[in-house]
């Protein structure tokens, strides 16, 4: 079996996750590029038969976490969570919800966003997400719970502001 070709089958998913995580196409594709380079280099270390998706997402998480550490060290202001692909053919109202959620997602902590995306978008089990992020499953659950709650608060907050305007 060709392991390098096997890596290629995971690229669209890595890219989707990176786009949601960074909120920016260029940084996302850089992250995928770095992940692939490291994966190709370390392919010999990958245990054949083990879960390749988990292995690749672990590599991506490690690179992302390192970048965050470096950014925080250099005091770089966080990049704005720019809109992803909003060319989706959605009715106006749906498009607003999409934009709101994308914005709210960018306001979560990076740690919460990672958990929320691995579970909600990548549909990993809590055990898999814990393994990929190298944290206990209890931490996955508390980040998931807080992340979802904050998203909910932010989304309803946006609604409340609109309502106030209407009243005036």
């Amino acid at each position: 079996m060709d392991d390098a070709a096997d890596i290629a089958t995971h690229i669209p998913r890595l890219r989707r996750y990176a786009r949601a995580l960074t909120g920016d196409m260029t940084s996302a594709d850089d992250l995928v590029q770095d992940t692939l380079e490291r994966a190709w280099r370390r392919l010999a270390l990958w245990r054949s038969g083990s879960d390749m998706r988990a292995w690749l997402f672990t590599i991506m998480h490690n690179i992302f976490a390192n970048q965050l550490r470096a950014d925080r060290h250099n005091q770089t202001p966080p990049t704005e969570h720019l809109s992803a692909n909003l060319s989706v053919a959605a009715p106006q109202e749906d498009r607003l919800i999409l934009r709101d959620l994308n914005k709210a997602l960018g306001n979560l902590s990076d740690e919460q966003r990672e958990v929320l995306l691995l579970v909600g978008l990548e549909q990993m089990s809590y055990e898999e997400a814990a393994k990929v992020l190298g944290i206990p499953i209890g931490t996955v659950m508390s980040r998931l719970s807080r992340g979802r709650d904050q998203l909910r608060a932010m989304m309803s907050g946006i609604g409340a502001v609109t309502q106030l305007k209407v009243v005036k």
């Binding site: 390098a4 290629a8 890219r15 786009r19 190709w40 999409l98 959620l101 978008l121």
Partner: peptide, 30 residues
């Protein structure tokens, strides 16, 4: 709904054509 909206937002990325440089790793030395 949050989960569904995440899919609506980011699933289109899955259909984007993969750049050729990602499909052909320089893998000779690997």
């Amino acid at each position: 709904e949050q989960n569904n909206t995440l899919h609506a937002l980011f699933d289109p990325v899955l259909a984007e054509p993969v750049p050729p440089k990602w499909q052909n790793p320089e893998r000779h030395w690997t």
